[in-house]
């Protein structure tokens, strides 16, 4: 046996260059700044309740991470939420059993996602264009179904899931997100499925030539993304207790921001669940803190946009400068 080490010798400095580490430092600084500015920030109940602001998006961000690592993008998730919420409201109004309602809701999301996946793989069309189309289509279906009415009756279980706490402390949505994050991190980083997703994202052609079923994976990932959008729709509808067709409008951008800010390369092939989770907390704590300071939502929008561009632009700019100096 040859004695080739698995990794180069460990250097403390290397950690400092890790994206996850930089994100972590940013998160800690935000926590410190926030707690200095507002005395209400570090209140445990406040903090826990603040997770309601991002948990639903965060759930979708997990599958979106898979989609983006596999060199795809899905702009239709928010519209799928609209469709699934309508299904949720409609099936409830028909008086179906709770579990049937939930199953049909999840099914509707899965079908929407599968529809994306089928068009993308069958016709070999870039996902950004397909999902721009289905983004209008799905949202439009919700509008044409609901017109200007709304649903406000949901099964008790759904309302409870959306706004309730486990043991009175931990919001179900947040708990679901954390559990899913652990499962997804395991799948992505420890299993052959994860390795295949990286391989597809890095070089889809080479992956195909290595016998990896690229189209099958792409299809399944989009289906999953739809399914999890429906799951998010259940939490969101339960929390809002009223569903209009414009529900979750613009969320696709916020979700993609979560993923990209978390260090996932927009053209696929690299990124980690840990990075995305930290970035979700950064964005969540940021908007919570700014909210406490009475900064309106738009301030957060601008800040998020800047953060998104600078988090990618700044390192690559430094790199270019460094290369010029050499």
């Amino acid at each position: 046996m040859s004695m080739i080490p698995e990794k180069p010798p460990f250097k403390l400095l290397d950690i400092l260059y890790k994206k996850e580490f930089i994100l972590f430092v940013v998160l800690v600084s935000i926590l410190i700044i926030n707690s200095n500015i507002s005395p209400y920030f570090l209140d445990l109940y406040n903090l826990i309740d603040s997770t309601f602001l991002f948990s639903e998006k965060a759930i979708i961000a997990l599958t979106m991470t898979f989609v983006i690592i596999a060199r795809q993008i899905d702009l239709s998730v928010a519209s799928i939420i609209a469709v699934s919420s309508c299904v949720l409201g409609y099936t409830t109004s028909l008086g179906y059993d709770t579990w049937l309602v939930i199953s049909l809701t999840l099914l509707s999301g899965g079908i929407c996602g599968a529809f994306n996946g089928a068009i993308i793989t069958k016709f070999a069309i870039p996902s950004i264009i397909v999902t721009i189309g289905t983004m209008s289509l799905f949202r439009g279906l919700a509008y044409s179904f609901l017109e200007d009415s709304y649903y406000n009756k949901f099964p008790k279980l759904v309302s409870n899931l959306g706004g309730g706490y486990l043991f009175g402390y931990i919001p179900y949505a947040f708990l679901t997100f954390i559990i899913l994050a652990i499962i997804f991190a395991f799948i992505l980083h420890k299993t052959s499925v994860g390795k295949k997703i990286y391989s597809i994202g890095n070089n889809p052609d080479a992956a195909q030539y290595t016998g990896i079923a690229v189209d099958k994976y792409t299809f399944v990932l989009f289906t999953l993304n739809g399914l999890f959008s429906a799951l998010a729709a259940i939490f969101l509808s339960g929390r809002l207790s009223s569903v209009r067709p414009n529900i979750a409008f613009g969320w696709e951008l916020e979700i993609i921001t979560m993923v990209v800010l978390g260090g996932v390369y927009i053209y696929g092939g690299s990124g980690s669940i840990l990075g995305v989770v930290i970035s979700i907390f950064i964005l969540g704590m940021l908007s919570f803190g700014l909210g406490l300071l009475n900064v309106p939502g738009v301030g957060i929008i601008i800040f998020t946009g800047l953060l998104l561009i600078l988090s990618i632009g700044f390192p690559s700019f430094i790199q270019t400068l460094r290369r010029k100096n050499e």
């Binding site: 052959s192 391989s199 070089n203 080479a206 992956a207 690299s270």
Partner: peptide, 24 residues
């Protein structure tokens, strides 16, 4: 470069790319 290897993945991963089932 285009169809044979995945440049941004490790040498170990590339060597094992076609036998993931056997290695898991």
């Amino acid at each position: 470069q285009q169809l044979g290897m995945t440049g941004l993945m490790s040498v170990k991963d590339n060597i094992n790319m076609a036998i993931m089932e056997r290695n898991s």
